[in-house]
Design a protein around this nucleic acid. Sequence first.
DNA 1: GAAAATCTTGCAATGTTTTGCAATTATTTT
DNA 2: AAAATAATTGCAAAACATTGCAAGATTTTC
Lengths: 248, 248
Amino acid sequence: MLKEERHQVILNEVRIHNKVLLTDIAELLKVSPDTVRRDIKELHDANKLKRVHGGAISLGFNHYNYANREIYSLEKKSKIAEKGISLLKEGQVVLLSGGTTNLELARLIPPYLKITCFTPSLPIAVQLLPKPNIEIIFIGGRINKDSQITIGGGPLAALSELKADICFLGVNSIHPSDGVTEFDWEIVQLKKAMIKASKKVVVPSISEKINSAQRYKICDVDAIDLLITELDKKDPLLQSYGKNIGLM
Amino acid sequence: MLKEERHQVILNEVRIHNKVLLTDIAELLKVSPDTVRRDIKELHDANKLKRVHGGAISLGFNHYNYANREIYSLEKKSKIAEKGISLLKEGQVVLLSGGTTNLELARLIPPYLKITCFTPSLPIAVQLLPKPNIEIIFIGGRINKDSQITIGGGPLAALSELKADICFLGVNSIHPSDGVTEFDWEIVQLKKAMIKASKKVVVPSISEKINSAQRYKICDVDAIDLLITELDKKDPLLQSYGKNIGLM
DNA sequence: GAAAATCTTGCAATGTTTTGCAATTATTTT
DNA sequence: AAAATAATTGCAAAACATTGCAAGATTTTC
């Protein structure tokens, strides 16, 4: 049994039960308690769980990371969001995926602009709530706590009945040959459906995400109509994209 | 049972009741009072609660900065919410309509309780988000800005496929002969569907709503299984209900 | 491809923490 | 002031953690 496997088992148990007893894991995996202890220590150091006397417990309430970690890039995201908003026209049906850049976009949408927004993101829906002219349609389903968006079969079915004018697709990584990629398989399915449900696909992305790749592929680069970054169109980082995609 | 778990339970009890008795915790967790005393001492040192003779009290008891009028009804709502939570059992599928009483109920659901919550309410979903053991299914659709819940055909269709164990139905008015009523027609349709989608219907309601009526009818009083108020079962205000409904 | 270096794992000896109990002291209640 | 309840202290048994070590597996290096 590989260490990585044990780690997955431990994290999974923690996710399910909110805690694990060291002795239970040792018995379950048929390894010595020492090994489990070392595993837990590693996972603790990697900030995946909290090591305590007798086992480990879930980090649980540390959802604050979501906001804190990303503050430094907020300026870039605002810049991108503003560019994105310039694309919006009265009466449009807009599809907003999750992510902090789209959240920033939602925040900056002018309150007098009359549009319809579809979104599976809880924070985005909350952000749009006070804007009187925006009709919000929440794409329901099981909520993924990490990303705070709904995923699974429900959202996919709902999207299959939609044709939005424009989709702002928050992504994890984009690469000229590897395409648009993500590390969560279910989120990939959702984003694929979002692309299908939209006439025009816009990817707002900070430059850090450019030219990187993750495990699962959402689509090729040329499935995207427009790539928005905080950089200038002529930035060398973007030159491998220009042929197939619009830049902004 | 890990020490960390006991700490979570104690803090949670303090959060809910603003105080705990040492002996109650000892009995609840089936450990010696000495252990609980040591736990409370640790939590006190970590500035998580205030240790007092006989138990502990909440630190932020006076930190509430609600308007005075709201505090009054909030207390009632907390009382109702606590009664409601006592009905919840591990593994249940719970349907939560909107409303501030249900929001209070959502706030007070213990984080270690493993249940599935269906809700069309944005604030309730947000409230449940940090609780690791609660699976949240958001009932999608067009968001009504006043009530911050989704309404319309989408939610109705979603509910038609559900059979929840228990439904907490926030209502506007309840009257012995006029039944349960509401002023918004679309919300009435939604709540009708919620009743249909649940094995058991519980109405948590502050006493102000008792014996009043609105324009549109959701159901007769006897479609409700249990009425929870902040009052005692034997309160004269409730005596016209007792024959057909359970009281709490 | 063999040797060296590194990593992984279980074991044993030793050290630490946790927990309940009992005796004593302090606080609250009647 | 007496009785009841709670807190403190010291203690011992059990559970858990740490450390160093050695055998085996894996990777690196030449």
